[in-house]
Design a protein around this nucleic acid. Structure first.
Lengths: 211, 211
DNA sequence: TTCGTTCTGTGATGTAGGTAACGGAATAAA
DNA sequence: TTTATTCCGTTACCTACATCACAGAACGAA
């Protein structure tokens, strides 16, 4: 790994030997907000471990319409990457940095070789699948059972929780894209939430007043 | 395992020693159409391997409204079971036999003990996660990007493919439940599909005319 | 300060799908 | 055969959301 060291603080359960291996084989990578790590069609040649910041994972349809799936944060990895790169198929999702984000990229084959060697790695991989599965179920719930105002409200809370818990820095258009709806609908429903005293809107920024 | 033998035809990649183990530790189970294997809140104490037939996996919201997630067929296992039982949390999905179905139930702990022992088992488990992940993405696409008429049409094709490829045996109400919509909407849109020459409706049964 | 750009607010109108209310058709039960 | 039950079809109406059109507000660049 480059000059910088892998700080295992984000992965407290990894045993020292595994940390050593990661430091040896991993590449540090820093993403600016909005920078793309993975786009649909890419073949993924690495397993990303998130050290700091967050990535949002989005699904696209044929015309480029998007819908938000889930966030990856400190200590997470991407199950899509795991399954895509082990089976050598192109990605079907998009991964974008939600904020300034730092990751370690591991060569794909380490996934397999470390499984029998490090119990903490095996646990990590299985937990990753499990958490992503839960996230996908949450995404389905949102799409199948909730109305747009609640979906917006929940998205805002999730985004706020990633950072300073008070402000969400996003335009109405950006929120609309993540929810696969239109900007006008977001504006209207934000006004409604504002009327309910849950938020206050500003330009490029939304202030959360309630929990 | 009971008097009947585990017929590994549905799992051709399992090595002989693994098949032996499964025959020793597994329990054969037969489900009638509509019978429930797992319901939300259940703690799952087994890993199900599908030998014949099919299971449908559904997500429920708080008021009992449902939405279809995916089918498990011959050679499949349930990723939810894997993750739920390894982490000892209750199930958050419902599993119902779509037709007459035969499974082997394995004690949970075998999942782990066999991982280092049988390469074919490890491959199987990872592929299972991967396939279920793909299924979930398909479910999200359906909910986020497609209109109800197309969702119905696709569901009919999937159901037909499970069995005789020509007839789907279901009431409008049942389809409505799986798509979390209302019976009237299903009736309307089936009439529309009938008008387009894609299907012919009968009582308790829908005939597929097109591909 | 002016001009151009991006973002936000809002009215008008269209549409997919949800809901209520019924009546009739097909089938099962008595 | 009569009755009850389940399933299907349809009308009328309602609601959430999509789409279009446009205007003003906020900001950044010249």
């Amino acid at each position: 790994m480059n000059e910088k060291k892998f700080r295992p603080g984000s992965f407290p359960d990894f045993e020292p030997k595994l940390v050593e291996e990661i430091e040896k084989d991993g590449t540090l990578r820093r993403l600016e907000p909005g920078e793309e790590l993975i786009r649909p069609g890419n073949y993924i040649r690495f397993v990303p471990l998130v050290l700091q910041g967050s990535l949002k994972i989005l699904r696209q349809d044929a015309d480029g319409k998007e819908t938000f799936l889930y966030f990856l944060t400190k200590g997470d990895t991407c199950a899509m990457s795991l399954s895509c790169c082990t089976s050598n198929r192109p990605s079907t999702v998009r991964a974008v940095a939600e904020e300034e984000t730092e990751l370690v990229l591991l060569p794909v084959d380490r996934l397999d070789t470390w499984l029998p060697l490090f119990p903490s790695w095996k646990t990590f991989i299985f937990q990753a699948y499990q958490r992503r599965f839960d996230d996908m179920l949450e995404a389905v719930d949102s799409l199948a059972f909730r109305r747009m105002d609640e979906r917006i409200w929940r998205l805002l809370k999730k985004k706020a929780a990633l950072q300073d818990r008070r402000y969400v820095y996003a335009t109405h258009q950006e929120l609309a894209d993540e929810l696969s709806t239109s900007r006008e609908v977001v504006t209207r429903l934000l006004k409604k939430l504002e009327g309910m005293g849950k938020i206050k809107t500003h330009r490029n920024r939304i202030e959360l007043l309630a929990k």
